[in-house]
């Protein structure tokens, strides 16, 4: 592999300066994202907030795809149950409670992740991918047809909860505060996921990716690690679902369809798997490309054809994604 992976894994030399540079870049990007609402027009601000949410979903999938070596098509379920969990909580609590929505969304996604993980982690490679795909479709059909609970085809519509901390603050979200709230949770998730990937647990996941039999032979119960990895990944994907539901004030079955999982994987590959930042960059790039195409050629334009062509070109010329390419360029 490359120098980049050596840097990521090497335990001591140059660690301090690397870390300093990393946090400086992180601070600059955070500052830009914090002031974005004052600069961007309404449409583009919402666009940016959504990219952050898709980025969180893609990042959660990277924990499996890039670090554990598992291709998951189950992320539409985790995202969707985050959405519907939040929707249920918001429709049944008076006044609608944001924290309850997050809790219910995470419980829904975590429960689904445990269920999917229990059956699928015994399998590897394409068998794992297919099993998660099948579960995704089962959940989709349940949500689509159980109209009395999920609203079926129409989904659920609700209004945005207040941001309230008892005795401290209580305000209605506007586009500024919505953006900052999403930014805070996505950035927090990123920092947490980064910690996890650099921890002993994270190393076991990477060891499973590199050599599963060997990882078992040195004493690790590989199946249990995979189950926990899928659950963690599902929880972060569920959080993305909650945020999407709160921002857009609806939960819809379309998002539970496996296409969402496919998009998630495309974000990862475009941005660069195994980097955590890459998937966010990939999500941004994909959404921007789609938006530009529909602006240039109109709403009816079959944008997936040129997007697909760009994707193929990227796989051929930037196999490590945008982040991998940027890293190589910076190292030169």
């Amino acid at each position: 592999m490359t120098l980049a992976s050596l840097d990521r894994i090497s335990p001591r030399k140059g660690r301090l300066s690397h870390t300093t540079v990393f946090w400086m870049v992180f601070a600059v990007i955070m500052a830009l994202l914090v002031i974005a609402p004052f600069v961007l027009p309404v449409f583009w601000l919402k666009f940016l907030t959504e990219i952050l949410i898709w980025g969180l979903l893609a990042m959660s999938s990277d924990l499996l795809l890039g670090y554990t070596g598992l291709i998951s098509f189950g992320h539409s379920v985790f995202f969707g149950l985050g959405m519907y969990g939040a929707a249920g909580a918001l429709l049944h609590s008076h006044p609608a409670n944001l924290w309850l929505a997050i809790l219910c969304g995470l419980a829904g996604a975590g429960g689904a992740a445990l269920f999917v993980a229990y059956f699928s982690t015994r399998l590897r490679d394409v068998y794992f991918a297919i099993t998660t795909l099948i579960f995704a479709q089962i959940f989709y059909v349940i949500i689509f047809t159980w109209t009395s609970v999920t609203g079926g085809e129409n989904g659920l519509i609700f209004s945005r909860p207040h941001f309230a901390i008892p005795f401290l603050v209580d305000f209605k979200f506007d586009r500024y505060t919505m953006h900052w709230f999403v930014l805070a949770l996505v950035a927090g998730s990123y920092v947490l996921l980064r910690r996890i990937t650099r921890s002993p647990f994270g190393m076991v996941l990477q060891s499973i990716r590199e050599n599963e039999a060997r990882t078992r032979a040195i004493g690790y119960p590989v199946d249990r690690y995979k189950i926990v990895a899928v659950m963690l990944s599902g929880l972060f994907a569920g959080l993305a679902g909650v945020l999407y539901a709160v921002q857009n004030e609806f939960a819809a079955p379309d998002f539970v369809f496996f296409i969402t999982s496919g998009d998630t994987i495309i974000f990862n590959v475009m941005g660069g798997i195994g980097t955590l930042v890459g998937p966010i960059v990939g999500a941004g790039f994909f959404q921007l490309l789609r938006e530009l195409l529909s602006r240039l050629f109109g709403d009816q334009f079959p944008y997936l054809i040129p997007v697909g062509m760009v994707f193929i070109v990227m796989i051929i010329f930037l196999p490590q994604g945008l982040m991998g390419w940027a890293r190589r360029w910076l190292n030169q």
């Binding site: 050596l6 647990f201 076991v204 040195i218 690790y220």
Partner: peptide
């Protein structure tokens, strides 16, 4: 790295599930 190969083995006896500290 060579070091990481050996450390991940040592880690299977201690701190195997530690998630929030840098390895």
């Amino acid at each position: 790295t060579v070091f990481e190969n050996v450390r991940v083995a040592a880690q299977s006896r201690r701190h195997a599930w530690s998630m929030l500290r840098d390895r």
